[in-house]
Amino acid sequence: MLAKRIIPCLDVKDGRVVKGINFLGLKDVGDAVELGRRYALEGADELVYLDISATLEGRKTFAELVSRVAEAVNIPFTVGGGIRSLDDASRLLDAGADKITLNSAAIARPELIGEIAAKYGRQFVVVAIDAKSGPDGRWQATTHGGNKPSDKELFSWAREAEERGAGEILFTSMDHDGTRNGYPCEVYAALSDSLGIPVIASGGAGSVADIAAVLTEGKADAALAASIFHYGQYTVAEVKRQLAETGIPVRL
């Protein structure tokens, strides 16, 4: 049976992980390669590395980091942050990334999804959507970390992304992100039902019960989490063990 995936997310700035991480005995907690290896050993199903560098120099460092991650880590990993062109995607593929995420750049120029998928296959392209619910209940996709509204609506944009060649949709509710109050499961379920490609839930997990809910009621295929792992609340192995106890298929 296909397992639900648990995916730790690491934010990287100038080559180093910037959020606090809970691995005891790790001398350099900022080392993105070592952390990736530790997560993989703990049972992470995939990893996501997001580049939040703002400088050209930071971007270069990130590409070098991707090569080192590919050498060291024996599970699939996705990279994102600042990918604006087929060339950017090609560089990261050549460095060894298994998938890339597109966010603002896909909203600005949706053709980019198809250009990358045509060259490298749809399994390589994850479209990330950060959306906020409006007073009318409409979920509006945003860019720039939720600060800038776009003209795209979550459901129609996700379907368009699928038609253009996206292999997965990574949806973050900006209303829930960082709150640790759980995910909007009904929105995830409707999104998952409306698509023929996997949906990854992101942002809002405060407990294993929240993750379990989005993987069952929310019909998500995978859950991406950062703070729940980084702040020492749970290890990946603990989360998966607890999910397994509730009957959710996970790889142990």
Partner: peptide, 15 residues
Amino acid sequence: SPAPGCKVPHMGWND
């Protein structure tokens, strides 16, 4: 063939 709840491609960890 796409089936309800079964996405194509088959992507992820299976036993």
